[in-house]
Design a protein around this nucleic acid. Structure first.
Lengths: 186, 186
DNA sequence: TTACTGATGTCAGTCACTGACATCCGCAGG
DNA sequence: CCTGCGGATGTCAGTGACTGACATCAGTAA
């Protein structure tokens, strides 16, 4: 049947994106995805904790990038600015994959269960950001609040970046714009 | 078996809280909850969209309270302040039920799936808040950002309120405290 | 009484997910 | 070249969340 075994994981992700986009999330069974990727359903669940998780493979990396950027930021940078630097860094993961990100966000927006999982990933980003700020000796509740605000900017920036007319918009610029609007609130 | 049919819904909620606390979420089947409440599993799923939802029955009301308070706030109030007034109003739903809220939040914190659902409810609160602000002619992205920040304050306030030493703490005071910390960030 | 409405019970079925066990593949050591 | 070993995969059976279709039953208005 299939002679290539390499990167079963990547094939499952691609198959899921394709099938979810075509038939929708509900009408696609885990077995469908697995078969389309040339593996068994059992193997699918060995790679992904559940059916939704297949769409959120890079989220851990994003939190990692944000953490590193925040810890690497100059100590003189205020908490909110450090957190925002983390958001811009996390966005670096999207830089070369806007088309993929657009298709993915369309699929996620189409099903409440996927939206819910995305919220969980954003919450993980909030937690990672807050932890990184605490490692910079930012006290609570400032760390938690700054993390929440920064991720809110990330979220708003992502929405604008996804629907930008510019074919290759710079994510960091959108974070800056959201941050400016945030500061203007108070 | 049971002679009283009134308020099957309330009995299911109580049964779920009890069983989740005793055995944990995973070890409690939907059928267990239903039987404990004197109904069938099918009836359980007619009242609640899924097994988790039984713990989140009041969340719609909270969003409603927040919306009303925001729309009723004086037009001169800046967006963030109006949103925060909404959060204080939403907290009114908790006022007389701290013991219940404590038990519930313990259960929710004990299982990732429940935590995930709570995030969805908070996101609904963000959406309702942002919509109410837009109805006050607050433009985007200001409305979205103010809503996110306000709900972040709600979240932080809730955590502090839940673990307060004072036996009957005032929720609105905790919202104010979080809001003050938020404003001090920038 | 009669008809209608809404809540519930019953039953069968699909599918997400899991544990236990067998198998196969690439590779280090002999 | 053989051998054993660890990791990834296949196979199979089972549990439980959730759904659709249909029957029933209580309360209520005509």
């Amino acid at each position: 049947m299939t002679r290539w075994k390499p990167d079963a994981r990547g094939r499952m992700i691609a198959a899921a994106m394709e099938l979810f986009a075509e038939r929708g999330f509900d009408a696609t069974t885990a077995g469908d995805i697995a078969a389309h990727a040339g593996v068994t359903e059992r193997t699918f669940f060995r790679h992904f904790a559940d059916k939704r998780e297949v769409l959120f493979d890079g989220s851990g990396t994003m939190a990692h990038l944000a953490t590193e950027a925040i810890l690497a930021a100059p100590a003189s940078l205020p908490p909110l600015d450090a957190a925002l630097a983390g958001m811009a860094a996390a966005g670096g993961l999207l830089a070369d994959r806007r088309e993929h990100a657009v298709r993915r966000s369309r699929i996620v927006a189409a099903h409440p269960a996927l939206h819910e999982r995305e919220l969980l990933k954003l919450a993980s980003l909030v937690d990672a950001t807050a932890d990184a700020l605490r490692a910079r000796a930012v006290p609570d509740p400032d760390a938690a609040l700054a993390a929440h605000c920064a991720v809110a900017c990330f979220h708003v920036a992502f929405g604008a970046w996804i629907s930008a007319a510019d074919p290759a918009p710079d994510f960091a610029r959108y974070v800056d714009r959201a941050a400016a609007a945030l500061r203007a609130l108070s």
